[in-house]
Design a protein around this nucleic acid. Structure first.
Lengths: 140, 140
DNA sequence: GGCCTTCTCTTGACTTGCTCAAGAAAAGGA
DNA sequence: TCCTTTTCTTGAGCAAGTCAAGAGAAGGCC
């Protein structure tokens, strides 16, 4: 599976490079990481990779539809390889951990606003805010 | 109505100051503005107000439950006085304009995830992404 | 009204997260 | 293997917002 990255990259019209493989490896093993963490983890396999290279790779992956970018309020952007199913996220207000939630309804946009005010809507982004099990236990 | 700001501020345990009144005036007439715009507009009524004062006022208003902060991905935070009804937003990908949408379901959290993964959820944030009528017309 | 305590505003430095630009290096087709 | 194009490295730069210290108001108490 891990060696299928090159096929995915080529399908998206992107060249196969070592930084891209490394970043995809990190995303596969660490879903919902931020760019800085990707740099740190990716350096285990590719010590010379630069932060800017990671930003560039992430932009290419998102542009090519291989990764998805989420930006929970009050924190850096996070990335995941799970794309195309319009799933949603649970975010902990305390520790910031992000967990996937399957979409309650069908395909994207899974919800329709009551009044679109003339907008042409293509995506409904849903974020559930709360406390994860661990942080909730500590609070008490 | 505009002179009811002082009562609202006092109820929230906040002192009544000129910067706070000015910022609330701006929010009442310009919903969904960012901090920088608030500074610009507020200076019409209070020329000496500083950006940091606005940031401080906004933090106090949000903390006191008088304003709500929303942070659409890829842009600065925006603020609105409409609080307590858990409504949602339509955001234009092109021009960034934000429009209120009444909540489809009932009270907060208006939606429940299919699997909470142990989270204690207190809010469901919904953002509908698309193109506003104007930007959609220009595209074609 | 005047005084005093406390909160808030001003001023200015600083941090974070990310983008832009120029040249070097690598990918992939001929 | 060579050549063109894309991508990565290196380094500067930017936007949004935070932190900290002192000056200045707000509001309770006398």
């Amino acid at each position: 599976m891990e060696t299928a990255w090159d096929a995915q990259l080529r399908t998206a019209g992107l060249r196969v490079t070592r930084p891209r493989m490394s970043v995809m490896d990190v995303l596969a093993t660490h879903p919902h990481v931020d760019a800085e963490t990707i740099v740190t983890v990716a350096r285990a396999a590719h010590p010379s990779i630069s932060p800017q290279a990671v930003y560039g790779v992430l932009k290419a992956l998102v542009g090519g539809g291989l990764a998805r970018r989420i930006e929970p309020a009050g924190g850096p952007a996070r990335y995941e390889l799970r794309v195309g199913d319009n799933h949603h996220h649970l975010v902990c207000r305390e520790c910031g951990v992000v967990v996937d939630v399957d979409c309650v309804v069908g395909a994207a946009p899974c919800l329709a606003p009551s009044d679109t005010a003339g907008f042409v809507v293509d995506e409904a982004e849903v974020v559930f805010w709360g406390l994860c099990a661990g942080c909730h236990a500590v609070r008490r």
